[in-house]
Amino acid sequence: MSTHRHTISVLVNNQPGVLQRVSGLFGRRGFNIESITVGESEERGLSRMVIVTTGSERTLEQISKQLYKLIDVIKVVDLSASPMVAREVALIKVNAEPSARPEILGVVETFRASVVDIGTSTMIVQAIGDTDKIDAMVELLKPYGIRELSRTGVTAMTRGLGKA
């Protein structure tokens, strides 16, 4: 069976331990987590998790059904089943001696990223975009020497009226 990347939105009760319940379920059933983000949702008392996972259609079906068995899970939606917007934030601390800065700024501008800190020999680049864009930007900055990379993981929602 073919394996695909899926982006799942999970609406959960904002209870202590709920992240552990969800991530533990993925771990013990052998489901893969590429990234997981969690934060408040539009409704008080509920949080929204966005999980990027890979697996066959059958695995995805099991993930959804097993998630629904958790009492603290209210709703599960496969966002990637319809058009969606997916974004993550990356902070990239890159070596930036004064001589290299113009080139780096060129990359930053092309990707509509921004510089949020400049030190004597480094700068921090902030990039927002989908995973492919961030991957591409990281590749382009590698030759200068990336000292530190921190990515949030993907958060996402469907386009138009579709609601997760």
Binding site: P16, G17, Q20, R21, G24, R28, K69, I71
Partner: peptide, 14 residues
């Protein structure tokens, strides 16, 4: 114990 038993309970409360 809620953490230990998370995989083997239908639900748990602290």
């Amino acid at each position: 114990i809620t953490g230990i038993t998370m995989p083997i309970t239908k639900h748990s409360y602290l």
